[in-house]
Amino acid sequence: MRFAAQRDPLVVAAPQHMSTRQVAVHLLLRKGLFMFGAVVITLMILMAIFAPLLAPYDPNAVDMQNSLAKPSAQHLLGTDNLGRDTLSRLIYGARTSLIVGLAAVAAAVILGGILGTVAGFLGGIVQAVIMRIVDMLMSIPMLLLALTLAAVLGGGLKNVVIAISVSMIPPFARLMAAQTITIKERDFVSAQRSMGAPKWRTMVGTVMPNAYPAVLVFGTMQIGAAILGEAGLSYLGIGIQAPTAAWGAMVSLGFPYLVQYPLLSIVPGVAVMLVVFAFNMVGDGLRDVLDPRLRGTS
């Protein structure tokens, strides 16, 4: 009898569960490419934080006697045309890339997210106006837009971030608008409305949390794109200004010596490639875990 009393059907329904987060982490650890990406990104973050400790030389110390030196015990990755240690510049360059990537994407997520949510949720004329402006911006290639902005604003870290984030707002706004339009048709949105919740509350409290998986996945991939964008701008000479170490600028610097001494361009180029690839793999992995339809496959 006591046993029967314990087996209340409602209590049994309470699962001895792993939390949703634990399940997600568990799934992610099983993905090789995700782990590879995660390790690369972690190393890069550590490298950026501890740059002064890790770099064997001052990245800006010129040593003309020793320019274009081949890799050696003193200079593991050689030196550039001004005799600066390539490894040290690479380590410091990670800072620039990371700051640009994270800051630009964060700004684009916030601005694009707000624009997209408002447009998608309110619909009608508001949506038409916002989305047409976004479409206009989108019709300009991202790099070209960033290039124009950087040219107008001038170089420097802050302006590069502004240029790249502005050029990234349109895709985030469209993603968010599309997400919002599907989410606002769901029953829990009308249920919330029936409780007398004002619109802004539904937008912030209900629409945004439901759209977050898609934004997280896309955002992670866009960090790679932003780093690439910064490298592109720096390569074209309107990004990060010398002598600050930046990977794109380093590739560009090696250009005149491409035949004579290709390593100068290859080293930062490979770094950019590796990091962009890593962010894409992490984004892919997150998508697989966050999209329940793909869970368990591949």
């Binding site: 769901r186 249920a191 209900t206 439901n210």
Partner: peptide, 10 residues
């Protein structure tokens, strides 16, 4: 639909 009336992420 009670299940659809609740926000799945909260």
């Amino acid at each position: 639909e009670p299940i659809n009336s609740l926000n799945p992420v909260l």
